[in-house]
């Protein structure tokens, strides 16, 4: 690990001042469960690490019933799962977090760090960058892509967005509050994620000298939601594919639906096809199956990950049935 300067500011404005306007020079530190590994592997080699731990107003969970849930970016997964109002009003978040089957990660990992964790792609982690290429060829498409994207994968960045919580949050309509030198901006959470196309770009729209301060989740009664993850094993592992679904029903009829797929694209992937297949339909097994089928109509699997198309079909179907 390269020597670095460690800063531990107590206010967000100080933190932002300590962060460089260029990627690569500084990194914000939350729980460190991802960043430290990246630094040990020389994938990230910041000259300065800016810890956010002492900034008091980045923590905390506030629910205004019928309006919104505000979660400070430095709130740990554990704090979320132990919060009674989150348990009562957002069971889908609890469901998603509890599937991160590692006590240590839930103790240390923060919700902000979860959104901003870096891709798990093995080429990226071995130091080939976010756009891994060899002799001008995309490494993922031509190499071992068993875990890679089946949507949005035409470029070199055809790894998958890692967070298993982001899809559920996006399905719930969450927004992200970002604080930078020019103050606060609030964006839809799905806009935090992007697919890098040029060297030097990252997979988040967060600017290098911005920090994520809060996740804001609208609270509406009567929304049904569920996450279905296809996991090969129980112990600390990422799912192969997941689907997060929110449904608004009138009787058994679906008024509106959001279907966000995880582990299938470089960003959390909204499946408009699945959503259209649901709206106006009666919620039953047949509808769920049709939505699963619709979700994969435009899938473009790579040489080794065709099975993920089938897993996506099933995840969507099962998430819908579970939400019902």
């Amino acid at each position: 690990m390269q020597p670095f300067e460690y800063a531990s500011p107590t206010s967000r404005s100080e933190a932002v001042r300590l962060l460089s306007p260029r990627w690569g020079e500084t990194e914000a530190l939350a729980g460190g469960t991802d960043l430290l590994g990246l630094m040990k592997d020389y994938v990230c080699t910041p000259k300065r690490v800016v810890s956010l731990k002492r900034i008091a107003d980045l923590r905390g969970i506030h629910l205004v019933p019928g309006k919104e849930l505000r979660v400070g970016a430095m709130t740990t997964y554990r704090e979320l799962t132990e919060n009674e109002s989150v348990r009562r009003h957002f069971p889908v978040l609890i469901q998603a977090i509890e599937r991160i089957r590692s006590e240590q990660l839930r103790n240390m990992g923060s919700i902000g760090g979860g959104m901003l964790q870096r891709p798990r792609d093995w080429y990226f982690r071995l130091g080939y960058g976010l756009l891994p290429e060899k002799d001008g060829q995309a490494m993922i498409a031509n190499g071992d892509n068993r875990y890679a994207a089946i949507f949005g994968n035409s470029g070199s960045a055809s790894w998958v967005s890692p967070s298993t919580i982001a899809p559920a949050l996006i399905a719930l309509g969450a927004r992200a509050a970002l604080y930078g030198p020019r103050g606060l901006r609030v964006i839809d959470l799905d806009r935090l994620f992007t697919t890098p196309a040029q060297p030097g770009e990252r997979e988040h729209t967060l600017r290098p000298n911005e920090i994520l301060t809060e996740i804001i989740v609208p609270h509406r009664e009567g929304i049904r939601s569920a996450v279905y993850e296809v996991r090969q094993k129980e112990a600390s592992d990422y799912p192969l594919v997941l689907a997060a679904v929110t449904l608004e029903l009138r009787g058994r009829s679906i008024r509106s639906a959001r279907v966000i797929l995880g582990q299938v694209a470089p960003v959390p992937w909204p499946s408009h096809e699945a959503e259209s297949a649901l709206v106006g339909k009666t919620l039953n097994e047949e509808t769920a199956e049709a939505a699963g089928e619709a979700a994969v109509t435009h899938a473009t699997p790579l040489s080794m990950n065709r099975y993920k198309v089938q897993l996506t079909r099933v995840a969507v179907k099962r998430a819908i049935l579970e939400a019902a």
């Binding site: 080429y123 190499g143 875990y147 094993k233 129980e234 112990a235």
Partner: peptide, 21 residues
């Protein structure tokens, strides 16, 4: 296949059975 390197020299992608498995 491209570099001849081991792609999973870690306990994340080199998957082990946990007690739940």
């Amino acid at each position: 296949p491209l570099t001849g390197r081991m792609l999973n020299p870690n306990m994340e992608y080199y998957k082990f059975a946990g007690i739940g498995d």
